[in-house]
Nucleic acid binder design. Structure first.
Lengths: 176, 176
DNA sequence: ACGGACTATGCAACCCGTTGCAGACGGGAT
DNA sequence: ATCCCGTCTGCAACGGGTTGCATAGTCCGT
């Protein structure tokens, strides 16, 4: 129900093909919203049927044709409409928290291994985000418009990963 | 795929009926793992079929009968097995982040309203967590075993909500 | 000419979770 | 008696997401 609008936002920033979007959702956008290529293709097809996006087939040299999607005025209206409606808070789901809470019922060392693995993962993401921030937004105080929006979302990623790293570190220290 | 194990953990802490679990998942556990009662009933039924849990019908005075579920040795083995297998990192999904990123395509004031609403929500959760921590774990350094595990998961909630509050506050200030 | 690798799109089946509705039981109010 | 309310359980339908597999085009190496 919301992948539609995530795709609209992405396509408003830059028209793209299904595979392009898949790559984008595996990179910057994907850190805040994941999606497989099948899901993306399916939603693109549905949105085309609803007239939210339109397709241009682009022949490529040395590659199969590409179907580039662009947002229609109707799609922009749908996006604006969604932006104006309040979003219910997203319920949280953390397998790792469940494991932590139930660690006494199994192999504690294995749970600690899982925690360590997640810690390095979050640390890596954090490093990556910080690198992106330094490279793309060296002077945040000067930003406005879309740049500012993108920067602030990236800040959300940084703060989130920082809290995860702090949490898992605290967990490991408590069980040291 | 993982609600099964969340229920097993909850039932290992304390055998309960479907409705009991629904309430627990709406309270403490639910802050880290949400579930509707229908889903809980369905999974309980499936786990009973698999021999992971067993049922005792408990007649109650002034109320309908209650089906109390308890974990079987087979269920404990399944839980231990799950605890020993690594968990893939959970992909993130944030409607709000998508709205922030796409705010330029619609009514910015409405997006700011959504952000404010989420902020008060996160602030309320944070306050609640802190209250729980103060009440139930006044001296964290003395904890061990299951108490320590539960405390550390609660700490995760606190750190998470703190980061969310910080993020949304930063967002509002940047758009002031 | 042929197999392998990469790009690009897509179908079909399945799993999980949500939503809407319903039914059975007892208590309390009128 | 009746009606509504709260408890407790459950079914059925729907929709989103994932997994596995399929296909078509083009380049490259041999």
């Amino acid at each position: 129900m919301a992948l539609d609008h995530a795709l609209l936002v992405a396509l408003c920033e830059q028209p793209a093909s299904g595979l392009d979007l898949t790559k984008r959702f595996g990179r910057s956008i994907g850190f805040f919203w994941s999606a497989t290529h099948q899901q993306i293709y399916r939603v693109l097809g549905r949105m085309e049927g609803e007239g939210w996006v339109e397709v241009t087939v682009v022949p490529q040299s040395g590659r199969p044709d590409k179907k580039v999607y662009d947002v229609t005025p109707l799609g922009r209206a749908a996006l604006a409409d969604w932006l104006a409606t309040p979003t219910p808070p997203t319920p949280l789901r953390s397998d790792l928290a469940v494991k932590m809470r139930g660690a006494a019922n199994g192999d504690r060392a294995a749970v600690l291994d899982s925690v360590r693995a997640h810690l390095v993962d979050h640390q890596a993401r954090l490093d990556h985000y910080r690198q992106l921030a330094k490279r793309d937004y060296p002077d945040p105080s000067e930003l406005n418009g879309t740049d500012l929006d993108q920067y602030l979302v990236l800040r959300g990623g940084i703060l989130l990963e920082e809290s995860q790293v702090a949490w898992l570190t605290e967990y490991l220290e408590a069980h040291a």
